[in-house]
């Protein structure tokens, strides 16, 4: 049962930002993550500021410069089924479709998906863990099967979002409105590692609201995909996932973005893998080297060593599929 709080539903952004000024207030978009946290006492709230009455935060549209704007209140279902997204950013549509369940996608928003709190069972459960202000991360010596293999320090959460790695791979930017006005943050620098800040997972300051996400156009002919592995067929977070965007000439990689989900406290961009791929032809050797690069530096805990294997597996598998569906590089043939 939810504890007590007040609820306001302003109709303008200005009002919403004002309402958020008081301490203990939280943004409510779809509420699917927020209400779960409040019910389980992960954190408390004095006031819920619902932004669902603010029309300008909805919808997907393309802009003249070729960029696409996704309002923060756009539901995951809308993202997953939008022809505009499917045509231009297949991996985002796939990532949104792979999240949670149909009902949650009908209700959960893209803004909320980026800002949802971690799913670590100690954090969500009745444990006074480090991230909640306690003094231990229980994952270190505990049940850490689902925890991170990259980027952990003191706390070993993984970032739960499926759309976040996709958006990072697409060089998307978050447009943020706060008490001091607007600011724009590339998604690649939106998320925060525990080493930097233990109490939050992103750069949002209190009182700030994501208004929309903008996506630059992908170079023509680019391909992208999102591959998610989970323990159960649906309704399950990623054990590991791979957001991949590539520009190829034949089988030669001209540009790539490789971002992993489910393995780090933030969407984990693997620049090393991108480096391996750059200018190389996709062939079994490149695939192997790319997979190696993606796992380099992994520091598994006692129970999550499988994630290293898994990263290797999905990187190889996804690249192989792309390799097999593309003709060999013309220069090679001649």
């Amino acid at each position: 049962m939810l504890p007590k709080f007040s609820h306001v539903r302003p109709s303008s952004l200005r009002q919403a930002v004002q309402q958020l000024a008081s301490s203990g207030s939280h943004v409510h978009a779809g509420g699917t993550d927020l209400l779960g946290c409040l019910r389980d006492g992960v954190f408390g709230a004095e006031k819920i500021v619902s932004i669902t009455g603010i029309g300008e935060l909805r919808g997907i549209n393309s802009r003249e410069d070729g960029a696409v704007r996704i309002g923060a209140l756009t539901t995951l279902s809308e993202v997953a089924t939008s022809p505009l997204i499917a045509q231009n950013y297949a991996l985002l549509a796939q990532a949104a479709a792979a999240a949670a369940s149909p009902q949650l996608r009908n209700q959960g928003t893209i803004g909320g998906n980026l800002c949802q709190r971690p799913r670590c069972w100690y954090f969500r459960g009745d444990f006074q863990c480090l991230r909640k202000g306690g003094d231990t991360c229980f994952a270190i010596n505990g049940e850490n099967e689902f925890h991170c293999v990259f980027g952990g320090s003191r706390c070993y959460i993984v970032h739960p979002s499926d759309t976040a790695p996709a958006l990072v791979a697409l060089d998307a930017r978050a447009h943020i409105r706060g008490p001091l006005g607007m600011r724009v943050v590339p998604l690649g620098s939106f998320f925060v590692l525990p080493a930097l800040d233990l109490a939050r997972e992103n750069v949002l300051r209190s009182g700030e609201i994501i208004t929309h996400i903008s996506l630059p156009p992908l170079a023509p002919g680019s391909i992208s995909s999102y591959r998610k592995v989970r323990a159960r067929g649906s309704w399950d977070f990623a054990l590991a996932g791979l957001a991949l965007a590539l520009k190829l000439t034949g089988r030669r990689v001209d540009w790539s973005r490789v971002v992993l989900s489910g393995v780090a406290p933030i969407p984990w961009r693997s620049s090393e893998t991108e480096k391996v791929l750059l200018g190389r032809d996709l062939n079994p050797r490149t695939l192997r080297e790319a997979a190696d690069a993606a796992t380099r530096g992994a520091e598994p805990l006692s129970q999550n060593g499988y994630k290293v294997e898994l990263v290797r597996g999905i990187v190889e598998e996804s690249l192989r599929a792309i390799m097999e569906s593309h003709p060999e590089t013309p220069s090679e043939r001649t």
């Binding site: 100690y122 459960g125 444990f127 229980f138 505990g142 099967e145 323990a231 159960r232 067929g233 309704w235």
Partner: peptide, 25 residues
């Protein structure tokens, strides 16, 4: 799943972390 070496509490006493088959399984 019990928190073996520490509190001894069940860490997955919910339907997300304790996974029963869905339509897709």
């Amino acid at each position: 799943v019990l928190d073996d070496h520490q509190t001894g509490r069940m860490v997955n006493a919910n339907w997300h972390d304790y996974k029963i088959p869905t339509a897709k399984d």
